[in-house]
Design a protein around this nucleic acid. Structure first.
Length: 298
DNA sequence: GCCCAGGCACTCA
DNA sequence: TGAGTGCCTGGG
């Protein structure tokens, strides 16, 4: 239960909840670490300071704002103990990944921001993705506060981006992704794609809708469905997940340093779907983060 | 300078 | 249906 600290903010027990693990696991691009325990995050048009302290997380905001914005954002209604209990019994390799990073939570971020963020993410590394999202926010977003006297901008809404052209995007150095972003802007603003409607659609149908956008393929669509819509059947399979899955579930060799086989992404997704079921997205996140931190398979 | 990164679209067999 | 290739850009 969340308590309201005296003029401090809202205090939540850090049960299955670690700020560093949650922010560093690649699902979120708009956070800043002041140190290992203190973070700023920009989401839903708000700026929030958070601190991990004495087995608690302190949200520096009003109780009202915590309830209306952040409780859902951090998926705090879900019992991650239950999720982990199921997954811990699957196999030793997954167990090791979970036990190393038990504090990962899957955030519920804004669909539009996730869509553009993951369109940008293709063939880019995380620092560069963050840089481009920051640039887009500074250019088209709204100023919502400051960190160390530096202004902070919300991620622009589709409406705020309605007049954006391919040239403007290229000037921000998004490269060949510029027409993809413009296509997304047009489809959403014209009503051809209703992002809110996807919440109520089943996974496959929601995915089909997202795939209509240029530059959105299987992987990008799965990221949006998992990190914005909370559709946990999604199993985004990028190069890291492919490496770790091949190594853990398709190689018979005991050598865990490098993978020799070449398993198709389609086969991996099918296996994940049968093996992890409705918890695929959680398993993906534990494995992805573990693989990346340990450079597994590379 | 060269190579490649958390993909995708397009082409050709 | 699958493999091959080009694409912007920045960092190692």
């Amino acid at each position: 239960m969340a308590e309201h600290g005296k003029n401090i903010g809202v205090i939540v027990p850090a049960t299955y909840f670690d700020l560093k693990q949650t922010f560093d696991c690649g699902q979120c691009f708009r956070y800043r670490a002041l140190d290992d325990n203190t973070y700023y995050v920009i989401a839903k048009g708000k700026l929030l300071r958070l601190q991990q302290k004495d087995n608690n997380i302190i949200f520096f905001c009003s109780e009202e704002e915590y309830l209306s914005h952040w409780k859902e954002y951090f998926d705090l209604d879900r019992d991650y103990g239950e999720v982990q209990n199921v997954l811990l019994n699957k196999d030793e390799k997954l167990k090791r990944a979970i036990n190393e990073y038990p504090g990962i939570r899957i955030l519920k971020q804004e669909p539009w921001e996730m869509l553009i963020s993951f369109i940008i993410s293709q063939s880019k590394q995380i620092p560069h993705i963050k840089q481009l999202i920051e640039r887009i926010s500074q250019t088209f977003g709204t100023m919502i506060g400051t960190i160390d006297n530096e202004p902070c901008y919300s991620f622009p809404t589709p409406y705020e981006m309605k007049d954006v052209t391919e040239d403007m995007m290229r000037q921000l150095k998004v490269g060949y992704r510029a027409p993809y972003i413009v296509d997304a802007i047009n489809k959403v603003n014209s009503g051809q794609l209703d992002l809110n409607e996807l919440f109520s659609l089943p996974y496959q149908e929601a995915k089909k809708a997202l795939l209509q956008i240029k530059g959105v393929g299987d992987k990008v669509a799965d990221c949006v469905l998992l990190f914005a819509y909370g559709k946990h059947e999604a199993f985004p399979t990028d190069v890291w997940v492919k490496r770790v899955m091949t190594l853990y579930y398709f190689d018979n060799a005991d050598d865990e340093s490098v993978s020799s086989s070449n398993v198709s992404i389609e086969r991996i997704k099918q296996f994940a779907n049968e093996y992890f079921g409705e918890l695929s997205g959680f398993a993906q996140q534990y494995l992805f983060h573990y693989a990346r931190m340990n450079k597994t398979g590379k």
